[in-house]
C-alpha cells in the first residue's frame, strides 16, 4: 500500500472566473444582437418558440443559458442550467478547451472540428446558434481578433458594423 495515495484534484479559479465573465457577456450580447441585428434575428426566427440552449464547460460550468420566449424574444436566462429545460446543450469538454475558444486561439469551427465541444440536441438548431454566435463575435471583437474566432470575416456597411457594435455593447451592459 506504500505506493498508493489518493489525490483530490484541485481547481482553476482564475480560468473559471474568466470563462464565466465571457459567457455572461456573450449571453447578454446574443440577447442584444437578436434585437439589433437583422441577420441574428433571422437566425433565431428559424428556431421554435420556447427553444433554449446552453453553452458551458464540463463538468461543473460555468454556463450561459439563452432561450427564445413565447413572444419570440431572445433572452439571456442566466448561468444556472439546473431547473431549466434545455433543448440544446453545447458542452465544452474542459476548461482548457474553453480557454482556447474564449482567448480566440481557436475559432469556434476549429474547436468543433477538434471535438472540443460536445453537442446534445438537434444539429440544425446547433448550427443556427453557432452562426448567430459568429455574428455576435464580429460585433464584440476588433477585426484582428474576431478574424481568429470566425470562419470568414464579413463585409459590412459602416453603419451596421460600428453603430451596431455601439448598440450591442450598450444593450449588453444594461442587460436589455
Amino acid at each position: 500500500m506504500g505506493d498508493y495515495r489518493e489525490v483530490q484534484a484541485g481547481s482553476k479559479p482564475f480560468k473559471r472566473a474568466y470563462i464565466a465573465v465571457m459567457l455572461w457577456f456573450v449571453g447578454r450580447a446574443i440577447q442584444a444582437a437578436a434585437r439589433v441585428d437583422k441577420a441574428v434575428r433571422e437566425e433565431f426566427e428559424k428556431l421554435p418558440e420556447g427553444f433554449t440552449f446552453s453553452l458551458g464547460v464540463q463538468p461543473h460550468g460555468p454556463y450561459m443559458i439563452v432561450g427564445k420566449n413565447q413572444k419570440g424574444r431572445v433572452k439571456y436566462l442566466g448561468w444556472k442550467p439546473e431547473s431549466k429545460v434545455v433543448d440544446l446543450r453545447m458542452a465544452i469538454k474542459n476548461i482548457e478547451a474553453a480557454l482556447l475558444l474564449f482567448t480566440f486561439q481557436e475559432s469556434t469551427a476549429i474547436s468543433i472540428c477538434r471535438d472540443r465541444i460536445d453537442f446534445d440536441g438537434d444539429l440544425p438548431p446547433a448550427l443556427t446558434v453557432i452562426r448567430a454566435i459568429g455574428i455576435v463575435e464580429v460585433y464584440l471583437l476588433p477585426k484582428l481578433i474576431s478574424k481568429l474566432a470566425i470562419k470568414r470575416y464579413p463585409v459590412w456597411s459602416f453603419g451596421r458594423k460600428y453603430l451596431g457594435r455601439i448598440r450591442i455593447y450598450f444593450h449588453s451592459i444594461l442587460g436589455y
Partner: peptide, 17 residues
C-alpha cells in the same frame, strides 16, 4: 495528470509501484 483533472471534482487514486 493530476493537473489535467483540476476543476473536475474527481478524486484520483494513484499507484506508482
Amino acid at each position: 495528470m493530476i493537473t489535467a483533472f483540476k476543476d473536475s471534482g474527481v478524486t484520483i487514486g494513484i499507484f506508482d509501484g
